[in-house]
Write a protein that binds this DNA or RNA. Structure first.
Lengths: 170, 170
DNA sequence: CTTGGAAAGTCAACAAGACTGACATAAACT
DNA sequence: AGTTTATGTCAGTCTTGTTGACTTTCCAAG
């Protein structure tokens, strides 16, 4: 799936928008409150399993790229290995994640979701997708396009490539 | 756990978008990574003062509506009063926030930023505004409109009114 | 007027999850 | 053989969330 639709439109960026501090402040608050909504549904589900957002994120990214290494996961999640390790250990112990020794490089561990793990992943992402789908539908396609464009711009440039590349994984 | 989160918005939404799970997943990841970018700059500044995001949020909302009560702040921040209180106490001790006994109701405390508090508020919000302004400028005005529309839809309906009303404050 | 309940705020103790730092082990590389 | 890399672990700290218990203040019913 090609994702050139998010590519920056040439010329466009040189428009000198007049943005008042108040408009920007509203944008800031929208980010804050929308993110809260964004995490609210999965958080409720996670409580039933005594897991937190960290578990959710790990499960999400393992699902997106099954077999990724611990280092890759670390890198994309942006936490320390100690912090990730606690979460990962629980998930492996609970039988949601399978950690297999790498075939080429036996130092590495390749991470996979088990069937149970995939079930929880689906439950979590389904809740999140529902809200996202509703918001997208209510807002309309042009708005969705704008949403993507702005958010992409908000991501740290160094991360941006990584994220967009990673999203290409089938 | 009664939640009206699924209540329908009349009118706006009957567009029937085709949204693949993959498109939605991209939206989900954009939220995750953009939020990280969104908080990155203030986080760096906060380190210098040994404060965290909670302090930032408190300062932000006190600045937006000087003189608001602890309860109002509690409500908008969405944490427990005990959690807020710790943060607030530090800010008062450090001379960034002024907590005055309410004139009509002496149980209440009205919160104000001191001059020092306003200085830090500015420093933090300026960093955040810079990133927001850049993202907005690069994305263009239509995109900004879409961004706002989608994010507004993502907020919990119960909160939505509160937030939008609150944004009217001069 | 009194009194009992509710509301606003504070204090204490605990838990999750982030962090740093030090160290261990195994495998790969030079 | 010695070094670097990938991962895991232990210990300790910090921020920020939680619940429970408490004080002060207000208000309204008796």
């Amino acid at each position: 799936m090609q994702r050139n639709r998010l590519a920056r439109q040439p010329g466009r960026s040189e428009q000198l928008l007049f943005l008042t501090d108040d408009q920007l402040r509203q944008g800031i608050e929208l980010m804050f409150f929308a993110y809260r909504g964004f995490t609210a549904d999965p958080d409720l589900i996670l409580e039933n399993y005594a897991y937190g957002r960290a578990h959710h994120r790990a499960i999400h990214f393992i699902n997106r790229k099954q077999g990724l290494t611990v280092n890759e996961l670390l890198d994309i999640m942006g936490v320390t290995k100690q912090s990730l390790n606690r979460v990962l250990r629980q998930l492996v112990e609970d039988g949601l994640v399978d950690s297999r020794v790498g075939k080429q490089d036996r130092r590495q561990r390749n991470l996979y979701l088990t069937e149970t793990g995939e079930t929880l992943e689906w439950e979590l992402s389904d809740a999140q997708r529902k809200r996202m789908r509703k918001a997208f539908s209510n807002a309309g396609p042009e708005a969705v396009h704008g949403f993507r464009t702005v958010l992409e711009q908000m991501i740290d440039p160094s991360l941006r490539e990584k994220v967009l590349n990673a999203a290409d994984v089938p």
